[in-house]
Computed example of a mutant assay.
Amino acid sequence: MPDQPTPPPPTDLASLRVEIDRIDDALHDLLMRRSDLVAHMASARLKGGAPTFRPGREALILRRLLQRNRGAMARAAIVRLWREIIAASLAQQGRFTIAVPDAGGADCVASRMARAHFGLLTPLKAYPTPFRALASVAGGETAVAVLPAPDEAEQPEPAWWMRMEAPGLRVVAALPFLAPPDARPQAYAVATLVPEPTGRDRSLLRIEPGPEHTRPRIAAILEAAGLPPRWLIRRESPSPMALAEVPGYLPDDEPRLSALPFPRLQILGTYAEPEPEE
């Protein structure tokens, strides 16, 4: 049957409020139904051992909703609503705690981004350093660490990306998910997951350069390999190291990386490309 035209809204205030109440009830019914489905899925996952936290799947949900969004509701409101719904679903499926560095300076950004992305009710656990936050994820104390985005001006001690060596740790999300097109992430989420491709992804490469590999030279090498960096930083202390964000989902056996002339190169993670604010 063809779609029926939407009836015009009531014109008097009392009738408008009755209609809004009816819609609220319908939304609540759907949320309860969604919660029941999540509970059923959680039971199946417990039997099969599948991960509950899937940042790639979450990004695809949000992209689909943003693409179909029409009318007066802002894109930021859509993301805020569904981030809380997703967080509630994660809480249904087992203990889910976020590690953050102890509040102060750039670490405040990490806590703020963690709260915005993982919901108001998700427990945050503060650790004295980014390295302790990473260790808590590697040891299973927490599910995810949210850490401030790297900055070339940061001191060596907070440079978590230079010492992220624990087996299985990956950067799996860039925060915030809704951002201006040319903005750099404000924080990254790290977990013990193999990231899933979403169709529009970015990857973080950690490079140990040779003495001849200046920052412009590193950028030129990556661009020649088809991996033009969106941004690139190079640190000299405590040892020379560079970090670059490049476009695309890069698996561990990416052939373009094996041919690059650096003493060592490591994929720190792969994550969904953020969506534009407008």
Rank of each mutant, 00 (worst) to 15 (best):
W160C: 03
P156W: 08
E152A: 15
A145P: 14
T142M: 13
A133V: 11
M162G: 14
S136A: 13
A133Y: 11
P148M: 06
A133T: 05
W161I: 13
D151F: 00
A149C: 09
P148F: 02
R163M: 06
V144R: 00
L147K: 00
Q155D: 15
A153M: 08
R132Q: 13
P167E: 14
R163S: 10
W160L: 02
A166I: 08
R132T: 05
F131H: 12
M162W: 02
E152R: 11
G140W: 02
R163I: 00
A135H: 14
A166R: 15
P156E: 00
A145D: 12
E165P: 05
S136V: 03
R132E: 13
A166M: 11
V137I: 14
E154Y: 00
P148W: 05
P156S: 02
G139W: 13
A149Q: 03
Q155F: 04
A143M: 12
P167G: 07
E152Q: 15
M164H: 15
P158Y: 06
Q155W: 11
A149N: 07
A149L: 08
R163Q: 14
M164C: 13
Q155I: 07
P148L: 03
T142W: 00
A143F: 01
D151W: 07
G139I: 03
D151G: 08
A133I: 10
E165R: 15
V137R: 04
A143C: 07
G139N: 14
P158F: 02
L147S: 05
P150S: 09
A159I: 01
A143Q: 11
M162I: 08
E165H: 15
W160S: 08
V144I: 11
E154N: 08
M164D: 06
V137G: 10
V144C: 03
P167C: 05
L147I: 09
F131G: 09
A135G: 08
V146L: 10
V137T: 11
E165M: 13
R132Y: 10
P156D: 12
D151A: 15
S136C: 07
A166L: 13
A166E: 13
V137N: 12
G140R: 08
E141P: 00
V144S: 05
P150W: 10
V146N: 04
E154R: 03
R132S: 10
E157P: 02
P148S: 06
E165D: 15
A153W: 06
G140Q: 01
W160Y: 02
F131D: 14
A135T: 09
W160G: 04
R132C: 07
Q155P: 13
L147E: 00
A159S: 13
G140L: 09
R163P: 02
A133R: 04
P148A: 02
L147Y: 01
D151C: 06
Q155N: 15
G139D: 14
A166V: 07
P158H: 03
E154I: 00
